[in-house]
Amino acid sequence: MNLNSEIITGNVVIHVKEERLDAHNSAELKLEFQKLFASGSQNLLVDLKEVRFIDSSGLGALVSGFKNATTSHGSLRLASLQPQVKSMFELTRLHRVFEIYQTVAEALEK
């Protein structure tokens, strides 16, 4: 899975450089979240700007990361969802679970 991570004002910003988050690559993303929280990271911000497509296992990887965050007393927030991706969060009611921001910059201001 192609990811770039950077630390900005105490947040680990993960830029997902994949067009699809599906059953082929979502396990890797789930593992990445586990590793980050296990190594002491607290606040993750996932930039989904380049993700055009997400399926149930992609959503599941983000839910898994969210639960890791809660256990670690940290956070996992999302930014830059494309409209069709956002509609999947709405259909599965996950938009009520995640803090979702229009852009990475907006999330970092909060």
Partner: peptide
């Protein structure tokens, strides 16, 4: 929808 499971949304979708 409140249980936050990693799985179980595919057939629903």
């Amino acid at each position: 929808f409140d249980a936050l499971e990693d799985r179980g949304r595919g057939i629903f979708l």
